[in-house]
Design a protein around this nucleic acid. Sequence first.
DNA 1: CTCATGCTTAAGCATGCACTTAACTTTACG
DNA 2: CGTAAAGTTAAGTGCATGCTTAAGCATGAG
Lengths: 111, 111
Amino acid sequence: MLKHEAEADRVFHALADANRRTVIERLTRGPATVSELAAQLGVTVAATVQHLRVLQDSELVRTEKAGRVRTCQIDPAGLRNAEAWLRRQRTTWERRLDRLDAVLDDQTKEQ
Amino acid sequence: MLKHEAEADRVFHALADANRRTVIERLTRGPATVSELAAQLGVTVAATVQHLRVLQDSELVRTEKAGRVRTCQIDPAGLRNAEAWLRRQRTTWERRLDRLDAVLDDQTKEQ
DNA sequence: CTCATGCTTAAGCATGCACTTAACTTTACG
DNA sequence: CGTAAAGTTAAGTGCATGCTTAAGCATGAG
């Protein structure tokens, strides 16, 4: 639970930036180099590298360097973590609503 | 798409804070007052109010004031938005992998 | 009415973050 | 070799963020 919390911290922080989300959206369509991502974002390559570090630490992106060009692609682990946290909250909440419904049903029957 | 992007911005930013996630986890178990949330977080009531403003703006929490006590509960809209964004990315990525598989299958057949 | 309770708001502060520029390393090409 | 391209790293800057304290505003209990 605690390890998961730390992961959730990294992942949601990574997703909280619009430029980093744009990188993810781009990479779901296929791999890209650092320069290509920088061009699409409209920021410097240096800024893009910093974004990529955050995305890698949260397991949202994997990169590999061949020669002098670094190729980036989606790492599904981070997306799965984030989806799992959200689903956990939603199901807990829905289960509670179901219990509430049951209680209300019992009460109406007892009248 | 643009409106959705702005919503994603707010939601993921809200989820990026550990204390705000704790509030959500608490509220999935049932409603709570501002003071109760502050006590659990171990921060001042003032700080908690600020977190609640962020959570309301991202439609993760709804609140209602009765007398001098404000009761907070989950608003499922924000969670749904976040889940939708993540699912959109994941399915786009999986569809691309499927296409890649198809291409590779064709190539092996042609040999 | 008095006063404590629950919340709200404003102001200040330390820290973090996203970006830049600039200097540097490594790799490819002629 | 010389040089341009791709990326890395460091330092600095402005702005946002999360927190505090302090003051203020309703509301409920006695």
